[in-house]
Design a protein around this nucleic acid. Structure first.
Lengths: 186, 186
DNA sequence: CGCCGCATGTAAGAGGTTACATGATTCG
DNA sequence: CGAATCATGTAACCTCTTACATGCGGCG
């Protein structure tokens, strides 16, 4: 099977849950996948059109008053097959690109204060993400009856929690080491 | 300051250490930055040309016999200023895209065996990376006289170690939970 | 003999973001 | 009154990878 566009399958996967508009898809990504995924409108809408041409999704137009028509897409049988084929293919290795680490690696050429600022900003965003994931976790835990997809959600959640816990610690240590360096330089 | 291409600064940073050819740059990225960065020839060569046009780097041709000329680039004063300006700008937030987690999140539509295969492959690559980073760490630790850039290298190393340690554990647990699920389904 | 390392580059295209355009409704 | 939400889309642009083209020298 040929190389594959992951956005295609993010969309197909969400439509396999239930029919949705492009706008809905964006919202779902933001609300439920945002700690490991992102999509923009400028990518979603053209992709839906392409998927439709390939008959992996179907469109139904819902008339609305006072606002544009809602175009609701649902996955077709062929779409489900494409989704299965995607899973059958092993997931390709990711190539890393972490700009913060690039900066730190080149740190010799920087003002240490700038590095401190960046590490700190990163740590703060880790903290915020961590708080959010913990809230989601609490929410999942207290459900009386577990959702059928619970295990899958927990696995992605757990990935995020473990990574973020480790990395906030890193952030604290990194910050204090850089502060010391900045001190020593004076 | 306008939006910025990080590849530009990866290259500029390496040339600030010492003059190098495009081929050298690729090698350095592979050998020293590969746990958080990557570049391809198809990006490096055109970028060097652009940097040269903007006079951020200079080219010197080294004649060689039996193989193509080596074009060695060095950073100019303007290049150093551009590098500084890059550091002054706060590093932009990264948008996450983790295909493995996307798959797991959509796990309902997959054969659990496929997920297990993917998680396992990921864990194995984490393990390999971890072993490599530990070797680098051992190497740094045993140096009699620390390199001036030691702190920066250690920080990026430490980031990788912490993240990978947390994530190999995740991988083990995820795999066993998915195995259980696969059992239960039979 | 074939592969690896050395060395440079181009062309095609995939993949993705940002900014723009449009406009009604609802909430504070 | 302004901002956010709902709702769809396009165009320009940037970034980056893959595949191709070329060719010598050294090693096993």
């Amino acid at each position: 099977m040929a190389r594959v566009n992951p956005t295609e399958f993010a969309i197909l996967g969400l439509l396999a849950e239930e029919p949705r508009s492009g706008y809905d898809i964006k919202k779902e990504v933001e609300e439920r996948l945002s700690h490991f995924w992102s999509e923009s409108f400028g990518h979603i809408y053209p992709m839906l059109r392409r998927l439709r041409k390939r008959e992996l999704v179907e469109q139904k137009v819902e008339r609305q008053e006072g606002r544009p028509d809602r175009k609701v897409y649902s996955i077709t049988e062929e779409g489900r097959q494409a989704l299965e084929a995607w899973f059958a293919e092993p997931s390709p290795p990711q190539r890393p690109r972490n700009e913060l680490l690039l900066r730190i690696f080149m740190g010799r050429f920087a003002d240490p204060e700038h590095l401190i600022r960046d590490v700190r900003a990163q740590r703060e965003s880790f903290d915020a993400a961590l708080a959010q994931l913990r809230a989601v976790q609490a929410h999942l835990d207290q459900a009386e009856e577990p959702h059928p997809d619970q295990l899958y959600w927990e696995l992605t959640l757990d990935y995020g929690l473990r990574a973020l816990e480790a990395l906030t610690e890193w952030g604290q240590e990194a910050e204090s080491k850089l502060r010391q360096l900045a001190q020593d330089e004076k």
